[in-house]
Design a protein around this nucleic acid. Structure first.
Lengths: 96, 96
DNA sequence: TGAATAGTTGAGCAAGTATTCATATATTAC
DNA sequence: GTAATATATGAATACTTGCTCAACTATTCA
């Protein structure tokens, strides 16, 4: 496999994006389409602050993108590879 | 996406397996084939104890399997889905 | 203008994680 | 039997992470 240390760290960071149930649920909602922060918070039953903190991490990894409209901020996925990873993982946990 | 809370947690756990650089490197070596603990430790420049602790986690997630031979223990991958996830992730970090 | 709303941010804390170190167990060699 | 080797394990420690709370910015509305 001959993985560089850098690659190992980058891979770990990528998978870290999906290594928390809150982020998994955020990604799953964003797969449906662009969603604003307060809607995410409501659906996930989390505070807006908590959601915002997670979105910041996802933004820094360039996995989501923010679009501001008035005082609302709409988030959407910025990386389709993550969707593929998500679906592969879901297949795995759902049917072996 | 309609993800149950259970599914979200399971997904997060699955991705957690690859969310640490040491584990990523362990998996990458095991993709090459069955390897004993001390070889992993040497190649990864980690103590055998640290490797053993990580292997325990991977074993509990049923991602690796142990085969004992004399006083050595050989580990191999027990879940080919993880290899696919690994390769998808690697594609992503290597060429965008 | 001021009040209300949507979201972000930083500090602080509790819980979780990866490693080290010392010890324990199992197997082999003598 | 004892000594040496390979690995596993528990405790301790340092670090990381996810959340809450309070304060802040930006925008809309009256």
């Amino acid at each position: 496999m001959k993985l560089t240390d850098i690659n190992a760290i980058q891979l770990a960071e990528l998978f870290s994006a999906l290594s928390d149930a809150s982020r998994v649920r955020i990604i799953s909602l964003l797969i449906e389409g662009e969603t604003r922060v307060s809607s995410l918070a409501e659906e996930l039953n989390m505070t807006e602050s908590a959601v915002s903190h997670q979105l910041r991490g996802l933004r820094q990894m360039r996995l989501v993108r923010a679009r501001k409209s008035g005082r609302q901020v709409f988030y959407s996925l910025d990386d389709k590879h993550v969707i593929e990873l998500f679906h592969r993982g879901l297949d795995h946990v759902q049917h072996g």
